Amino acid sequence: MYLEEFVTALSGESVETAVSEGRCLAEPIGCGESTVDENGNLEYDSDDPTDEVWYSLDWQMTGLCPACQDELDEPDDYLAAPSEEAIETAVSLLDLWTELEPDDDSE
C-alpha cells in the first residue's frame, strides 16, 4: 500500500481532494477545517512572511493545515525527557557495541 492509499483509507479522502477544497485532511489525520480565507489565501499564525511559503508547500504535500503542522512539531507533554543516567547508559552501550564489532581487517 502506498502512502496516498493509506491516507485515503484512514481519513476517507486524499490529500489532493482536501487541498483542492481548501481545507485540512479529515480526522483522524487532520482537523478538516478550512485553510484559506475568503480571498483564497492560506491562513496561518505567524508574522514571518516566509512561513506562508513553507506552510503552503507542506499543506500541498501533506494535506495538513498550518495548525496541524505546528501540532506535529511540538513535543508531546506525556513523553518524559531522558535522564542523564539513561543517556550515559545508552552511550556506554553504544561504546560496548562498537568494541564488539569485528574489525574488517581481521577477516
Rank of each mutant, 00 (worst) to 15 (best):
M1D: 11
M1W: 05
Y2I: 10
Y2R: 13
L3C: 08
E4W: 08
E4G: 10
E4H: 13
E4A: 14
E5M: 13
E5H: 15
E5S: 14
F6Y: 12
V7D: 03
T8K: 15
T8L: 11
T8Y: 06
L10G: 00
L10I: 02
L10S: 00
S11M: 03
S11Y: 00
S11D: 02
G12K: 07
G12C: 11
E13I: 11
S14A: 14
V15I: 12
V15C: 05
A18V: 10
A18M: 11
A18E: 10
A18I: 12
V19N: 04
V19D: 05
V19K: 03
S20E: 15
S20I: 06
E21W: 04
G22A: 09
G22T: 15
R23Q: 07
R23G: 09
C24Y: 07
C24H: 07
E27F: 00
E27D: 05
E27C: 04
P28T: 00
P28K: 00
I29M: 01
I29T: 03
G30S: 00
G30N: 01
C31S: 02
C31K: 00
G32W: 01
G32V: 01
E33H: 10
E33G: 05
E33A: 11
E33V: 06
S34I: 08
S34G: 04
S34D: 08
S34F: 04
S34A: 10
T35G: 04
T35I: 06
T35D: 02
E38C: 12
E38A: 15
N39L: 14
N39W: 13
N39T: 15
N41R: 05
N41V: 02
N41S: 04
L42K: 04
E43G: 02
Y44A: 00
Y44Q: 01
Y44F: 05
Y44N: 00
Y44I: 02
D45F: 11
D45A: 13
S46R: 01
D47G: 12
P49Y: 06
P49Q: 06
P49T: 11
T50C: 02
T50D: 07
T50I: 03
T50K: 01
D51E: 05
D51Y: 04
D51F: 01
E52P: 02
V53E: 14
V53M: 13
W54G: 09
W54T: 14
W54N: 14
W54C: 12
Y55P: 07
Y55A: 06
Y55Q: 06
Y55C: 12
S56G: 11
S56V: 07
L57P: 10
D58A: 14
D58I: 09
W59I: 01
W59M: 00
W59A: 01
W59H: 04
Q60H: 11
Q60I: 10
Q60D: 08
Q60V: 10
M61W: 06
T62G: 03
T62D: 04
T62R: 03
L64P: 14
C65A: 14
P66A: 08
P66Y: 09
P66Q: 06
P66K: 05
P66I: 10
A67Y: 07
A67R: 15
C68F: 01
Q69S: 08
Q69E: 09
D70W: 08
D70Y: 07
D70G: 08
L72N: 03
D73I: 06
D73K: 11
D73V: 07
E74Y: 14
E74V: 15
E74S: 10
E74N: 14
P75L: 13
P75E: 11
D76A: 06
D76H: 05
D76R: 09
D77F: 05
